[in-house]
Design a protein around this nucleic acid. Structure first.
Lengths: 346, 346
DNA sequence: CTGTTAGCGCATTCAT
DNA sequence: ATGAATGCGCTAACAG
């Protein structure tokens, strides 16, 4: 691989001049600049990002560290991030913590070691409360690496964040189930330590209380935000008293799992059990009955996170901001008790 | 951030000794080694990967560069790669070329600039034939960065590759449609320049020929391996003569698109049009009728690719090898003409 | 406007 | 077995 010195020699200038030209400094005579560009092109020169980064102590890589790479919600985000990043000359790489704090810690260590320029993260949220002094998340914050949280709160730190109004959205969905006349509405939510799971559960609770009902804890299950977890939780609900006549699942994968369980057991939707899901579900339009869902603006979440990251990089001292994006409620047949026979779609 | 010098000073040894200890050289006195480890821990020292990589001209990052991050086939792969990588102390980052040669080129440039230790790629295949002398793919090969292709052939170069027997699998699927008595079997395949699309189409052709039929090019569509493409292709097929009574779609997303089109138009499956898909389809078990598919061992594809990469890194001169993994044929109701009324599932 | 010099943090010679 | 010196490729002071 040719270096800046090879280019300099060929162009008969000094290495610094080459560096200036290649970094777009305007202070170089056009004749020299042209020679440098020609030489670089002739040698097929590519800057060594490692050397540059070591010198500047900063790369042009962003990491998007998500908690489940197999969840389309997270991969859909990435497009939005990429579009903004590309404009600003950053490359974005995706890392998968798999809801596993150890894997998350490993990736954060790598992000730190590689001096990446910014991080967009949906945290597992056990990292920061870890007692280990060298907890990588702690270091990430200490090193003030530009950081934006998505989807969930980062516990123990105030950072830029982009989410939706989970409580409100969940409340609307549950309101709908209530107004449809379902009386034993269950909720399958995510891990207790994840804000998203808490807030969506809280919305469910509020809706029930607002309608003058008790919240029956026997109708609540904490699962893992995955398909298998949703499946198991649904099975467990069906096996116990009171038997739910509707279920609100707080993410896409658990919704799919719950649906599979219902189908496996021959439970009719929505006649026996109404279903409302959170997030878009893959191949949603092919599922019968059509599924009622709350959807999030995934692309915009990615875009917004990237824009916040850019602002944070530009001004590290600016106060952390929170972007709350709108959700959409899509009522379809799976939650329509009273009109269960019409096969409405939107 | 503390450096190796800070650790050295605290441990009252030389920087080289610190380096040796931290890199597990056995030639250091245990007493000194202990002091060094204590000092490093006390200072919360983390090696600067940039400096190390610059020195060794090599990082411990692998890139997985896929052509569509929203295709679960590719994200499912990543798990397999990660598991192998972690064992070998590599971190893996995922990049998305989006079937766009320009984006692919940008990422390859970044991979080169960051001196990543290895690459697993599903190439867009326009990069290498690009006329530009500085085509990054060309450089990637020239720089002999350890490289493994997945899913598709890398045109113009012989590299390690892991795939399935696409031709054979497609032939089996089409054979099945033939034996079910479908007579106007269409094929929706991917871009012409992608080997996977070519091979799956070839398998379709062979099956038709083997059954003594002509291959009617009016029943073939080249789409983009995406949902929208599959949808459009299906619509186009339905709008022209001869009207197909079955369709074989050569990947998961196009299968979903085709199904959506059929549902939109009220075409009954499989009574009016039988459907056979390639790859697992998201939420497949919820789709009615159950979908016949050929499935690939995604996790193993990832694992195998990672293992080949490891071997390539260990011995750059070893001849390129090709791993061909087995597919599975799952016949379900969507392709059963003769028994269209039974709602069999497996 | 351009060239010379120095140093980012580390691993690796080479001495001892 | 350990330490001193060197340079990976680049950018940024500083001179000129």
């Amino acid at each position: 691989m040719p270096t800046i010195y090879d280019v300099a020699r060929l162009a008969k200038v000094s290495p610094s001049t080459v560096s200036r030209v290649l970094n777009g400094k305007l202070t170089v005579d056009e004749a020299l600049a042209k020679r440098v560009r020609k030489a670089a092109s002739d040698l097929d020169y590519r800057p060594n990002a490692l050397a540059r980064s070591l010198r500047r102590s900063q790369t042009n890589l962003w990491a998007v560290l998500v908690s489940d790479i197999n969840n389309p919600f997270f991969t859909a985000l990435v497009r939005g991030v990429e579009d903004v990043a590309q404009q600003a000359k950053y490359s974005v790489v995706l890392c998968n913590s798999d809801e596993n704090p150890d894997k998350e810690a490993d990736y954060i260590a790598a992000i730190l070691a590689e001096q990446m320029a910014g991080v967009i993260i949906s945290p597992t949220n056990r990292s920061i409360s870890s007692s280990s002094r060298s907890a990588p998340m702690r270091q990430l914050l200490a090193a003030s690496v530009p950081l934006v949280a998505i989807d969930r709160q980062l516990r123990g730190a105030t950072v830029d964040i982009v989410t939706v109004d989970n409580t409100h959205a969940a409340q609307l969905a549950t309101d709908h189930l209530v107004s449809e006349g379902f009386s034993r509405i269950a909720c399958i939510t995510g891990p207790r330590d994840i804000s998203t799971a808490q807030q969506r559960l809280e919305g469910y609770r509020r809706a029930l209380r607002a309608s003058g009902r008790d919240v029956d804890s026997r109708l609540i299950r904490y699962a893992d935000f995955r398909e298998a977890g949703g499946h198991a939780a649904m099975g467990d609900l069906l096996d116990h008293t009171p038997r739910p006549d509707a279920v609100f699942a707080t993410n896409n994968l658990m919704t799919v799992g719950a649906l599979e369980c219902l189908v496996d057991r021959g439970v009719s939707i929505p006649a026996d059990v109404g279903v409302f899901g959170f997030d878009d579900v893959p191949s949603a339009t092919l599922i019968r009955p059509p599924l009622s869902t709350i959807t999030q603006p995934t692309y915009d979440i990615g875009r917004t996170a990237a824009e916040l990251l850019l602002q944070r990089i530009a001004d590290p001292s600016r106060p952390p901001s929170r972007a709350v994006l709108p959700t959409e409620l899509h009522v379809r047949a799976s939650s329509l008790k009273r009109r269960a026979n019409t096969s409405s779609r939107d």
